[in-house]
Amino acid sequence: MEAFLVSSGIVALAEIGDKTQLLAFILAARFRKPLPIILGILVATLANHGFAGAIGTWITGLASPELMRWVLGLSFIAMAVWTLIPDKIDDDTAAVTRFGVFGTTLIAFFLAEMGDKTQIATVALAAQYQDFAMVVIGTTLGMMIANVPAVLLGERIAERMPVRLVHGIAALIFAILGIATLAGAGAGLGL
């Protein structure tokens, strides 16, 4: 349950102001059809984070527990720093429109999420908790928590969101996870 709660919470916070949330705003403003946009986000996130979770789970079998502890601890600390760097949307990501609203959202979200901090966090969380299903479900829920309101409420919510504060909280959580991992937390889990 911890893997699910931490994964959903940290991704929901990290996603505020992220390029994929900005993409959700753009798609909502352009198409004004929330249901296919939300479904496209869900399917793209499940595919992307499923892949990331599988990599995270696979990696734990390749390295010693001591090496994994250092890699994960430093990865979480790097995520803390990365979370504090504002994202910008790439124009080419939102330009794919010949596939309809659902298809455009699916393709744009999947591509925008490649190498994104929430995808990298999914890899690290899956490696940390060694619970593929709970991490992927949690990170997907976190993405939906952050992006569904963006689709439904659009610009009204964007102007009122304290993005710097939310990013600071997410960065703090990543840093705490990193320090705890380096200090040996999770050692009983084989890390």
Rank of each mutant, 00 (worst) to 15 (best):
1 M>E: 09
2 E>D: 10
3 A>L: 06
3 A>G: 08
6 V>K: 08
10 I>D: 03
11 V>K: 09
14 A>P: 08
15 E>D: 11
16 I>A: 15
16 I>V: 15
19 K>L: 01
21 Q>C: 12
23 L>N: 01
25 F>D: 13
30 R>V: 00
31 F>T: 01
32 R>I: 09
34 P>A: 11
42 L>V: 03
45 T>S: 15
45 T>F: 04
47 A>M: 14
47 A>R: 12
48 N>K: 11
51 F>Q: 06
51 F>K: 08
52 A>D: 11
53 G>R: 11
53 G>T: 08
61 G>C: 00
63 A>S: 07
63 A>Q: 07
66 E>Q: 13
66 E>I: 13
67 L>R: 08
68 M>T: 11
70 W>F: 15
71 V>S: 00
73 G>R: 00
75 S>V: 06
75 S>I: 07
78 A>C: 08
78 A>L: 13
79 M>V: 15
80 A>M: 02
86 P>S: 02
88 K>S: 15
93 T>P: 04
93 T>G: 07
93 T>F: 09
102 F>Y: 13
104 T>W: 03
112 A>H: 03
113 E>L: 14
114 M>H: 01
115 G>M: 05
117 K>L: 03
119 Q>D: 07
121 A>R: 08
127 A>E: 08
128 Q>H: 10
131 D>N: 15
132 F>H: 09
133 A>H: 02
137 I>F: 14
139 T>G: 03
140 T>F: 07
143 M>G: 13
144 M>T: 09
144 M>P: 03
145 I>S: 05
145 I>M: 13
145 I>F: 02
146 A>L: 06
147 N>H: 12
149 P>D: 00
149 P>A: 06
151 V>P: 04
153 L>Y: 15
153 L>R: 11
154 G>Y: 08
154 G>S: 01
157 I>H: 15
157 I>P: 06
159 E>Q: 14
161 M>Q: 14
162 P>Q: 07
164 R>G: 13
167 H>G: 09
167 H>A: 15
168 G>A: 00
169 I>S: 05
170 A>I: 03
170 A>S: 11
173 I>L: 11
174 F>T: 00
175 A>S: 12
175 A>I: 12
176 I>D: 04
179 I>K: 01
179 I>C: 03
182 L>S: 01
182 L>I: 05
188 G>E: 09
189 L>N: 14
190 G>P: 04
191 L>H: 13
